[in-house]
Design a protein around this nucleic acid. Structure first.
Lengths: 201, 201, 201, 201
DNA sequence: AATGAATGAGGTTTCATTCAT
DNA sequence: TATGAATGAAACCTCATTCAT
């Protein structure tokens, strides 16, 4: 009857492709994880924010940990796409890196709760969700490995550490970023410049 | 190499006695916070690890949050002293910065649970311990501001962002550091070199 | 004598079903509050008496204080209705007052745990439930204000103090009442007579 | 050396017959019992208010229940003496009763925490302190029995119920008394007048 | 007389999850 | 798909009391 994506079809069609219950749930979870952290966020709070009872949540996700994975999936997917788009065009290597970083920072600091949830909830090695999330992150970070491979570095340039430094510095920014003093774009540009100017000279 | 960083010893030698109950408690708390995170770590687990009942813990600290503050105090105090010692000698600015970073990384990644607890538990803005901890961190980071002020940078060098980049990159390293592949000293040296080579040329 | 005061029946016949869990819970709470006092009565004991786990109690009432309010609501509702019924008929003013007092005492001393809980747990001014309960009591006592207004008193008769004296004397009776020596009806009759007739002949 | 009543004699004499530790403790206990009720008042709070550690309290009183008894002893002793003094003079029976009631109310509502503690903490029958306190109260109330015996009542005047009514009404007044609207003396006078004079004109 | 430390019991409440409906 | 009720575990913390010093 309706589109294949309409997961709420059993109810009379209200509005076209409104966020499904699962999506609402993930958003609610992201908000709670971002605000309180994974452990402190309660399933009840997430369900309430999504407009349902805690028990109903389990119709959609089998556990709290799966919500965290779901949130990460969305977050990583979004930021991956943002960065992919940014480096789609033809550009010199350093400019491509800068474009990627700009997209990265714009996503991370743009107020999207999915990214806040992402940053604030790096899972512990003992967490059951650890592996799944680590793999997603690794895949994303591979994008930057590629960008760095294209860079013309001196022979002793340790590209792995360069990537870790750049991504780490950007990741940590959620800790000190203040929209009053900084813009995501400026941070990205400045960080890249710090690295580039010597090496490029 | 040196023993100055042996964090298990009861600090600068204040009292000769065996570590006091408070110190044992802080160490137990640090271990638990490092392993499980602040929220997931239970007061009972901390007390048990310190060899007492949960109720006894409250003879020494009035709440779990105060334990977190205590852990941060020790951690910050130790790393501050380590860095202070490292920059005590007369050195050219870049070398002093590198010495500081080396000390910083050596502390952070040296396996001291107080630092692991520190890094894994950046408090949320809503946390009652947020203010207290933020101030401690700020005071520590001021050390690096001073070091950066001494650096001969070009006019447009944004020293604040440089500091944030360097410290952020180092902070994030607890996320990916593996003693098999890296050494703290090497990371510090490499990160500083990345920033220096252009600017110093 | 009558069955109107059978406080175990599920009230005016609202639903036919066996007493709901909420009602069982309130009764259990009333029993515990009557036996041990509000503070000393534990949520666990209340839940156990109602045949459930302490945690399950919170499906029905959000806190212990709300149980106290609920118990008061039922108690006040019952005694209000008993008094209302007693004064429903046409009677001379003093006889109506006596009828009201008889109903009042019969409720209070008839062994209903809800009234015992009521009397033994006048909340402190600092108690969060204080306001709610005070208002209920005030509404009930207004019934007596009306009855006293109908009394043909001399000009200097302080009707407020008269009400407070009468109600106070009756309230305090739960302190000394012994079913062996007294009947609720006799107490009521005697108290009203003391006020009505001249003792100083 | 000092007076026999100086229970703190081992310490160098500071001030003459200042409240002994036991007295301070009783006063602190009375305050706490009056504010929070016996059960909710904690030994720790009492000790703190008396300027000592909880453990030190046990040097003076062997248990919390003994503090309650001690508070009652003082309270009953004080009010007994107040009433005794009031009825010491030669007066007609009704005037003597009024004088006693005035003294009673003045004590009860005069802001003395010992009386507030007394009224707010009628022990339950299951309380270990129940018997001891009940006996004290009975002895005090015997004073009123005597006064009532002197009253010229009609043949059917039930003196026991009269006493219970009068004392009960006065006891309950701590529940509604407001220094803004009432004075203890006026309450006493009015209550006695209600009994003495015919209201049913 | 005083106390710091300790304790076992127990307080209220929240947790993630299950299950019958 | 949704939920109300339930649960066992566990959360943080406070309790009255004890004891060695």
């Amino acid at each position: 009857m309706t589109t294949a994506l309409d997961t709420t079809s059993p109810q009379p069609v209200k509005r076209r492709s409104r966020p499904s219950r699962r999506e609402e749930l993930l958003r609610a979870a992201a908000e709670c994880f971002a605000e309180s952290g994974y452990t402190a966020a309660s399933v009840r709070a997430i369900a309430t924010r999504a407009g349902m009872q805690a028990a109903s949540l389990y119709c959609h996700y089998p556990s709290k940990a799966d919500l965290l994975i779901g949130v990460h999936e969305i977050g990583i997917e979004r930021i991956t796409q943002a960065v992919r788009e940014a480096i789609h065009t033809e550009l010199p290597p350093w400019e491509r890196l800068e474009a990627a970083c700009t997209a990265h920072m714009r996503s991370l600091l743009g107020g999207d709760v999915f990214f806040e949830a992402l940053m604030r909830n790096v899972p512990l090695r003992t967490d059951p969700a650890y592996r799944a999330i680590r793999e997603m992150r690794a895949e994303y970070e591979a994008l930057f490995s590629d960008l760095l491979d294209d860079l013309p570095l001196p022979a002793d340039g340790d590209r792995r550490k360069l990537r870790l430094m750049l991504l780490g510095a950007m990741s940590w920014s959620f800790t000190w970023f203040s929209a009053d003093r900084d813009t995501p774009e400026d941070i990205a540009r400045t960080f890249v410049r710090f690295l580039r100017q010597p090496l490029d000279a």
